[in-house]
Simulated scan of single mutants.
Amino acid sequence: MSSGGTIEIRGELWDHLGRAILAITTCGRVSKRGEAVMLRGCARQARDRFPGLAQRFGALILSGGNHVYDMGDGMVSFPVEDDPFGIAEPRLIEQSCRELVSLANQKGWKRIVVPRPGCGGGGLEWAQVRPILERHFDERFLVISAR
């Protein structure tokens, strides 16, 4: 399915690991131990799959703020909120779109899979988020939702 510049697919995010860059929706909170707070959704799954990821990502947030980062292992952060207990923020999703497109251009990435940002635990509706993505994403970006 496609609407504008957004290509939507169904399936599991992790099925694309190694075949595409995976965007992991994240928040900007860091624990007292210096680890990124990755409590739910694909952030928690990434934390559990990749030991040391929360520490590496926490260091990036502490040094550069809540932004899109190449986290290694074929993943990038995609901030949707500052606080893990708050509602996702459309302005932050917009910023993350711009930063992800810029990073994809810089790295020459041809395929990036993004879950519907802010639409799970973040509390936003897809109808609110889709227009933001459509303004920025091109055919390299696939927006995945559960089967």
Rank of each mutant, 00 (worst) to 15 (best):
F50K: 00
R29D: 01
M38Y: 03
R47V: 01
S63N: 07
G65V: 04
P79K: 03
A43L: 08
L60M: 14
R44P: 08
S31L: 07
G41F: 07
G72M: 09
H67T: 06
C97S: 12
E94T: 02
G52N: 13
S96D: 00
R40N: 14
G41W: 05
R40L: 04
L62M: 10
D73I: 01
L60S: 11
G64S: 14
A46R: 09
G74F: 04
P84F: 04
C27F: 07
D82L: 12
Q55W: 01
R33I: 08
S31W: 01
G28C: 03
Q55F: 11
F85H: 13
A36F: 03
E89Y: 01
Q95E: 13
P51A: 12
I61R: 02
Y69A: 08
P51D: 08
E35M: 06
I87F: 10
V76Q: 06
D48N: 15
F78P: 03
G72C: 12
R49H: 11
S31F: 02
G74D: 11
A54Q: 09
V68C: 04
R56P: 12
M75E: 07
V30T: 05
V30H: 08
V68P: 05
Q55L: 14
Y69W: 09
N66D: 09
R44C: 10
F85L: 14
V80I: 13
Q55E: 14
I61H: 05
I61T: 03
V80G: 11
Q95Y: 09
E81I: 02
A59L: 12
M71F: 00
R98A: 09
G41A: 09
F85D: 14
N66P: 10
L53N: 09
F50N: 02
D83S: 01
R56H: 14
Q45A: 15
V76F: 00
C42T: 13
G86M: 06
E81N: 10
C97A: 14
I87N: 11
A59G: 15
A36P: 04
L92P: 05
I93T: 07
M71Y: 02
G28T: 05
L62R: 15
D83W: 00
E94Y: 03
E81Y: 05
V37W: 00
E35D: 10
S31I: 01
R98K: 14
L92I: 15
